[in-house]
Design a protein around this nucleic acid. Structure first.
Lengths: 128, 128
DNA sequence: GATTTGATTGACTTTTACGTAAATCAATTA
DNA sequence: TAATTGATTTACGTAAAAGTCAATCAAATC
C-alpha cells in the first residue's frame, strides 16, 4: 500500500476536480497532511474520499455525510454517548432501507418500461 | 379512486411545500388541469409526484428525473427510437445498481460501527 | 538563470432547488 | 357586504456544492 497520494492522482482515480477535494478539506471531512504547502493524502484520506463520494451518489448532503463519517469512527465516551451513537446508526439504517426500497420500485418500473418497448417492437414487425 | 386532489392535499400527503409542487409544474414534470386558475391534480399527477420524490430521495437531479419519467411513458416512434429507449433504460439500471452497491457498502460499515459500539459497551461494564 | 509544470490560495461566480414575501383573485362565511 | 380563507402569480432571495479565474509559489527542467 502506498504511503501518499497527490491531489491529482485522486482527482483522476475518482473523477472529481481539485476544487471538490479542497472543498471537502475546507469542510474538514478530510485532513491531508502537508509537505510545505502541498497536500499529501494518506490511504486513510483516500478511503474517506471514497466514502464521501459514495454518500454523494446516494444523495446525502455534506452535513449528512459528516454524520455518517462520525459514526464510522471508533466509539468513545461513556455509556450514554455510545447508546446514542447506536441510535444514530439505526436511524441511518432506516434511511438506507428507504433508499433501497426506492431503488427496487424504480427497477420494477424499468422492467415494465422495457417490456413495453419490446412489445412495441414486436407490433412494429407484425404490421410490416 | 378520487378524481382530483388539491395542491394542499398533496403537500400534506407528501410533506412538501406548494412551492415545490409548482416548481415541478414549471419544469413541466407535472401538468395538472385547471378549474379557473386553480390546479386540479389527477391520480396520474399524484403518481408522477410520487415518482419525482422517489427520484429525489435517490439523489437524482430534476434533469435526471425528467429522463426517468420519459422512460416510464408508453414507447412511441419507429424501431430505432425504441431501441434507443431500451438502451437508456439499461443505462438507468446501471446507475441504480451502483446506488444499490453503495447502499450495501454503507450498510456493512454501519454493522461494523454498531459492533464496535457494543464491544465498547461491554468493555465499560467489565472495567467497573 | 529562465521557464515550464504542478500545486496553492483567495475571491468571485454559477447552478440547482427551492424559500419567502407581496399583490391579486375567487369563493365561502360571518 | 365585509371579511376571512385558500389559491395564484410574480419576483426577488438563498443555501449548498462546487466552477472559474487570477495571482503566487516552489521544484524541476532546459
Amino acid at each position: 500500500m502506498r504511503e501518499f497520494y497527490t491531489i491529482t492522482e485522486l482527482t483522476k482515480e475518482f473523477s472529481v476536480s481539485t476544487r471538490t477535494i479542497r472543498f471537502y478539506e475546507d469542510e474538514e471531512l478530510i485532513k491531508p497532511v502537508r509537505r510545505g504547502r502541498t497536500r499529501l493524502f494518506r490511504p486513510s484520506d483516500r478511503l474517506l474520499l471514497k466514502q464521501i463520494l459514495r454518500g454523494k451518489r446516494l444523495g446525502f448532503s455534506i452535513a449528512e455525510i459528516r454524520e455518517i463519517i462520525e459514526v464510522y469512527k471508533a466509539p468513545s465516551g461513556e455509556e450514554g454517548q455510545i447508546k446514542l451513537m447506536i441510535e444514530r446508526i439505526n436511524q441511518k439504517r432506516k434511511e438506507l432501507e428507504q433508499k433501497r426500497q426506492d431503488i427496487d420500485d424504480t427497477m420494477r418500473e424499468m422492467d415494465n418500461a422495457e417490456e413495453n418497448c419490446i412489445e412495441r417492437l414486436a407490433e412494429l414487425r407484425v404490421s410490416q
